[in-house]
Nucleic acid binder design. Structure first.
Lengths: 200, 200
DNA sequence: TCAATAAAATACCGATCGGTATATTTTAGT
DNA sequence: ACTAAAATATACCGATCGGTATTTTATTGA
């Protein structure tokens, strides 16, 4: 019964899967080691045998949560034909937070950005990189759309990319805080408007 | 030397002023009572003599931080003439987060909305009310602009109001997380575009 | 000025925090 | 099946957590 992946690797994965939602919901400071042991059924000794400290677990969980969203969205984008449709994927993916499967606790970029503002530089660096990568992917799609003649030449790629991200994340914040998924959908209508408004 | 306001009231105010920035920066769970005693120079006994518990201090601090922003913005809005100019106040007030004086730690609505998602229902209720009140004020300005003939009749007040809030809060999140105040300014350009685009 | 009262400091509570040294159990190669 | 190594559990560490009962100090009205 020799397995490809080691026991340690399987445990690491179990810890990440069982606790990613907790960190994303309660934040770094709000998540305790007993939260981790309760969720996994493991002991502190086991967790610290697989991770150096609590921060390393949080970092792995952030990567896990982020990848979950990114792979789902990138899949939809790869299936879309035009650059316009690729950008419009976001209005579908985030619709009522049900277009793709989200991590428990919502968007890890929003949560971690606000949570790790100070106190945790490693987490802050990672969320900054995630936002910049997202921005770059959007800019590439917008520039592609300009070159393909879908968008007018006077479209501002960076401003549009940043505005789409801000609308989505701000919309998520409003929807969660006011318990109104439909508020997010209204904001996504503006996302759609901004994308379609660049039509040449 | 008899004073109008009691000693207790002055101490309460001191505690709020000295700790409002800490709660707004480190979050509720991340702020400890020793943070409060360090910042105020008071002891735990004194703080608990003026507040029932840590949560009550956090609630008072949220109100304080929120009022600071709201009064400054409302002042600028009252000085503006047209409904268009009143709405455009936001692009000035939030420009590089320097148009008005912000609480230490940034926007309390964004911070508290994400921080108090779970674990703290009183804080969550308060931030929900703050967002809904903000939305209502924006809707009133937009409807006023429609009635005054500044905006076209097919403007959607709620969608526009929610989108402006989402852009501002999302823009703040991006700017802080990536250490780039200019990203917020680019997002505010879209805020301006959306407002001016409703011109009839 | 002087009590009555209010406010702040001291000293303490049990619980939990993140983390670790060590012992026990499980895995995996032979 | 046996053993060396890896993984997990146990038991513990000092520090800090939020909160409180009690004592000391400061305020305030007469």
């Amino acid at each position: 019964m020799k397995n490809e992946i080691s026991k340690a690797e399987r445990t690491r994965q179990l810890i990440i899967e069982k606790t990613a939602g907790i960190f994303n919901t309660k934040g770094y400071a709000g998540t305790s080691l007993s939260d981790l042991t309760d969720a996994t059924g493991l002991t502190k000794g086991s967790i610290y045998g697989n991770f150096e400290n609590k921060e390393e677990v949080a970092l792995a969980c952030f990567d896990y949560n982020l990848a979950k969203i990114n792979t789902a969205v990138q899949q939809l984008i790869s299936e879309a034909g035009s650059f316009t449709d690729k950008l419009l994927v976001y209005t579908r993916a985030y619709h009522s937070m049900t277009g793709i499967e989200f991590p428990e606790g919502g968007c890890p970029i929003l949560n971690t950005a606000v949570d790790a503002d100070d106190t945790n530089n490693l987490l802050k660096d990672r969320v900054a990189k995630a936002i910049l990568a997202w921005k770059k992917r959007l800019i590439d799609l917008i520039k592609g759309g300009i070159e393909a003649g879908e968008f007018t030449a006077d479209t501002h790629p960076e401003q549009l990319a940043l505005s789409l991200i801000a609308l989505i994340e701000g919309g998520i914040m409003i929807a969660k805080a006011t318990n109104s998924p439909n508020s997010l959908n209204k904001v996504l209508k503006t996302v759609e408007f901004l994308i379609r408004h660049q039509k040449s």
